[in-house]
Structure formats: C-alpha cells, structure tokens
Write a protein that binds this DNA or RNA. Structure first.
Length: 234
DNA sequence: CATCACTAGCGCCCCCTGCTGGC
DNA sequence: GCCAGCAGGGGGCGCTAGTGATG
C-alpha cells in the first residue's frame, strides 16, 4: 500500500491489526471507526438519514442511497458487458453475468456433482438435499421449496379468473404457459420421421393430426362401456 | 485526527422463466 | 394436463470495509 498522505498510511496500517475499539451497546459487534459503529447502530434503531428525493425510501448510508438512485431513478449502469448488451449497476452483478458467457461455476455442491454460477443459487440448491420447504401457502398451508413455485400455486389454486393459455393449433386450454410449451412440442411439432396409420395408408408429421385421424377409424363409436350404453372417444 | 464521499465486496432474497417427471 | 421441484439469469437492497480528500 502507498499513499500520498502520511495520515492515510497511518490509517491503513490499522487495517493490519484486529483492534476495534468502537463497541456496539446493542450487540456484541465492534468496529474500527466511529462512523462504522454509528452506521451499525442505525441498523438497530432503524434510523435512516439518507432520504431519496424521488420516492419515499430511505437508507442508513449515502452509498446505499446512491445505489438505489441508480437502480430506480437515474438508471445509470456503469458496468458494461464486453460480449453483449448487458450492463449493470454493480460490479458483482457484472461478474455474475459474465459467468453466463463463460459457463464458469465456482460454487460446487459438496453433496452432489452440481456446481453453481452464483453463491445464492448454491444455497438454494442445498435445500434439495435438506428437504427444507420454507415457503408456506397462507391459504391451504401447503409448503414449497421456492417462493416462485408457491406464487404459481397461489395463483392457480386460489386465484380468481385465472387466464388460461389457448393452444394456437387446437382447442386445448392449458393453465401454465410452460405446459403449453410441452403441449406444442409433444403434439404440434414437425416430426422428421412420419407416423404411419396402422389402419390405412395415411402418414403424419404431426402427432396431433395423427391422433385426430385415428379417431376417424372408430366410426364414431368410440370406446364402449361393457356394463352400460356409455360411449366416448378418448 | 475525525469526517465526508465514494468504491468494492460480501450477503440475502426476490422476481421471472422454463424444463422435468410423477400423477 | 396438472402440479411441484428445481435450475438459469437477473434486480434490488442490507451491511461492512477500505481509500482519497478535506477541514
């Protein structure tokens, strides 16, 4: 370390010792400087001196306010990705983003072969080993591993007038968008290898068309119940 | 020397998205 | 098809530590 000022060098030297003479009176923590202690005590008391002028949020430190303003108001993103258009407010976000390009996974799970690109994802992954379900539905008390999964549950099970997804190729209505994706892949995607009808010469490159065609061979009779007159087509 | 302004860095949790496989 | 589990990419904040500059 070098500094143009002797005073700053002296201050820097203190970082090599463990001396922390500023003690918090509300918890066991100790700090090197009065300012750090002051900020820390404010986290206990909820004192937030730095108010945002554009919304009603407030922060303990000026730095937090400054970051907040970048996220919410100035939209200034100083860190630019050299590979794509992504930019971020924080350097740590850029490092995380870069891993999506490099594929680097610095956070290995010590219980399985999984490795994560970011620390929190590893933490989330570890819940799959502990079996912990920390999210509870406030209506039916069902528990979930992730908050997002619970949100979907709340919407689908307890929501009102939940919109369904209409398949663009048939009349099927599907609750979840991702299930529509599965439906499209399974039933409406083009198959290189055609399916041949076992009852006639027809061939199909789409499973849905094939299944519809198969019904025509049932002569409208469909499936008959052996016990009564009930019939159906599926 | 204390203090301000600022940056850096860790962490936490959330969001949305989309796939998987059991039912 | 419904459903919960679960991973990827990302936004926003909580908090602490260190440094340049100033009074």
């Amino acid at each position: 370390f070098t500094s143009a000022r002797l005073s700053n060098l002296k201050r820097h030297l203190k970082t090599h010792s463990d001396e922390k003479r500023y003690l918090c009176h509300l918890c066991p923590k100790a700090f090197r400087t009065a300012t750090l202690l002051h900020n820390h005590v404010n986290t206990h008391t909820g004192t937030k001196p730095y108010k945002c002028s554009d919304c009603d949020t407030a922060f303990v430190t000026r730095g937090e306010l400054s970051r907040h303003r970048r996220y919410k108001h100035t939209l200034e993103k100083p860190f630019k990705c050299t590979i794509c258009e992504y930019s971020s407010v924080e350097a740590s976000k850029m490092r995380r983003h870069i891993r999506s390009h490099t594929g680097e996974r610095p956070y290995p799970c010590d219980l399985c072969s999984y490795a994560s690109k970011d620390a929190y994802k590893l933490k989330r992954h570890m819940l799959t080993h502990t079996g912990e379900k920390r999210y509870e539905c406030c209506v039916c008390r069902a528990r979930f591993t992730q908050s997002g999964t619970m949100k979907i549950h709340m919407l689908q099970k307890h929501g009102e007038n939940v919109p369904k997804h209409q398949c663009p190729h048939c009349s099927t209505l599907i609750s979840r968008k991702s299930d529509l994706g599965v439906h499209l892949r399974n039933l409406h995607s083009y198959m290189e290898e055609a399916i041949k009808c076992s009852a006639c010469e027809a061939v199909f490159h789409e499973r849905y068309a094939f299944l519809q065609h198969k019904k025509t061979h049932r002569g409208g009779k469909g499936f008959k119940c052996a016990q009564c007159s009930y019939t159906c087509n599926q």
